[in-house]
Amino acid sequence: MKRAVFKNNWVAALMVAPQLLIIFVFFYWPTSQAMYWAFTLEQPWGGGNTWVGFDNFAAILFDDLYWYSVQVSVVYAIGATVLSVGMALILAVFVDRQLRGFKAYKIGMIWPYAIAAPAVGLAFRFIFNPGAGIMLYLNDAFPGAWDPNGNGTHAMIMVIVAGAWKQIAYNFIFFLAGLQSIPRSLLEAGAMDGARVLRRMRDIQLPLLAPTFFFVLVINITDSFTDSFGIVDTMTGGGPARATNLMVYKIFNDGFQGLDYSGAAAQSIILMFLVVALTVVQFRYIERKVHYT
């Protein structure tokens, strides 16, 4: 493969400098601060902090409720990713088949991504309100069938649906682009050999979509660990009985509401390493099965 190389390194450095500066200011600097706080006990109003080594991490790792929060986050990540990737794939395939009105669909499908997470949460809170709207009919027919305020599983389903809904749009764009980059000739050849729609999908489109699929998977899992805050905050506030207390929401709660800056900093460091580790694992083990054309 031929590589494009800058002859003049100074020009190259100048080009990347703004980007590096931004990364430094908005990523490395805050991370180093969080790292420092995680090993100290920070007084909220300033006025000094004490070095405590790994105490903050030990306190978190020996806390049952922290592990419960991890467990809840994993459930959310898997649920939201499977649902959003699955739905987006189906929708993208339909649009790619150029069914009637697909142009309108295409635009409509992209819009939800432009909506901020808290707004999504608010909208879905109305949709899933057990005492009003469509869910009221369900509860009238089967009393107690839908109770996100008392039942942790229901609350989790509600949060997953809202989170997945927002993410579908993003995945859809990538899947559609992926599908449209598959040469028509391949599909036509398959059709001439007698392969029907589903067969063509399984043997031609999905394998060729693997790189897109992998990219979307990494982004979705990362996103569900870090970006779920707004939805949880507006929909459940982490409840009932901590059933939707995702890791990122717990960090906000402990740090900003509870003024436990050090504990929250330690939790964000753990979360950061978790997301990094997950991404590494995905690249090492899943990417091997992906063939780039």
Partner: peptide, 20 residues
């Protein structure tokens, strides 16, 4: 840590009221 200790009380009481 009054905000957090108050929250602990509430979560635990809710758990008891839910029959856990």
């Amino acid at each position: 840590s009054m905000i957090q200790t108050r929250a602990e009380w509430k979560s635990e009481v809710e758990a008891a009221l839910a029959g856990q």
